[in-house]
Design a protein around this nucleic acid. Structure first.
Lengths: 110, 110
DNA sequence: AATCTTTATCGTAATATTGCAATCTAAATA
DNA sequence: TATTTAGATTGCAATATTACGATAAAGATT
C-alpha cells in the first residue's frame, strides 16, 4: 500500500510522529540549526546555506511549517522564517519524560 | 529523484535525521511506548499490541533496530526487544540543548 | 512601466516507504 | 522426527518523498 494507517494510533502518537518525521531529513535538520544559529531571524539566505536547489528548499520549508516547527511572516518581498518554540518544547518534554522513565528502570533487561 | 543527498550534510545532522526519521511513524512511536510501558522487556506480544500484520510490525522493528533505537536478543525461539538508551539520550540531549538556546534568545524575532 | 529579486507552485522522474499475503527459518515441543 | 510457534524474509502493489527545471506571483527597484 504505502499510506500510513494513522487512524489506528493515538493523537499523541501521531503528533510525535509528525514532528519527528519533519526532522527526519538532514536538510530540514540543517534548516532548523541555521535558524537557531542566526541571532535574529534572517530573511532569505537559507537557500544559499543549503546544497539544494531553491524549489527543493522551499518544499522543505513548507514541510517544517506544516509540521508546526517553523513559522514565516512576509517581510517586504522576502519571507522571515523562524523557529516555533511550541513544537520544539513538545519534543523536548517528550524525550525528557522518556529519559526520566528509563533512568528509573535502569536496565531491567538485556 | 527521490534519494536523499546525505553526503551534503554533516554527520551529526544525518545522525539526528536518522533517529528522527525512525520515530517518524506512529507505529514505531507506539512500539517504543510499549517497550517503555512493560517493566521488563517482554518477548513477543508486540504484534498483538499493534493494529498491523506481523510482517509489517517486523519491518518496523527492523527499522528501529537499524536506527539504533532498540536492540533485540534471542531468547529461545522468541526475541527480546528493548530500548537502547544511548540513542534516546542523544535525542534527549539534542532537544534539551536546543531548548536552552531558544530560552536565551527569547523571541528575538517574529 | 519594465525589470529585478525572492519565494511558491507545477510537473515530472527517481527512489523510498508502507502494508500484507505467502513463505521461510529455527527453536520448542509433542 | 513431525508439528507447532515466533519471528524474518520475499515479492509485490499502492502511495509518499525527494529533487529539480520551468514557470508563476508579488513586492522592490530602476
Amino acid at each position: 500500500m504505502g499510506a500510513t494507517k494513522t487512524e489506528h494510533f493515538t493523537d499523541k502518537q501521531n503528533a510525535i510522529a509528525t514532528l519527528a518525521k519533519a526532522l527526519g531529513h538532514p536538510a530540514r535538520v540543517a534548516i532548523m540549526e541555521y535558524l537557531m544559529k542566526v541571532d535574529t531571524c534572517i530573511c532569505g539566505d537559507i537557500v544559499n546555506e543549503l546544497p539544494l536547489a531553491q524549489p527543493t528548499v522551499s518544499q522543505h520549508l513548507k514541510e517544517l511549517k506544516t509540521a508546526g516547527l517553523i513559522k514565516g511572516s512576509i517581510e517586504g518581498n522576502a519571507i522571515c522564517y523562524c523557529i516555533d518554540e511550541k513544537a520544539l518544547d513538545k519534543l523536548q518534554s517528550y524525550f525528557a519524560k522518556i529519559s526520566t522513565k528509563l533512568e528509573k528502570k535502569r536496565n531491567n533487561c538485556c
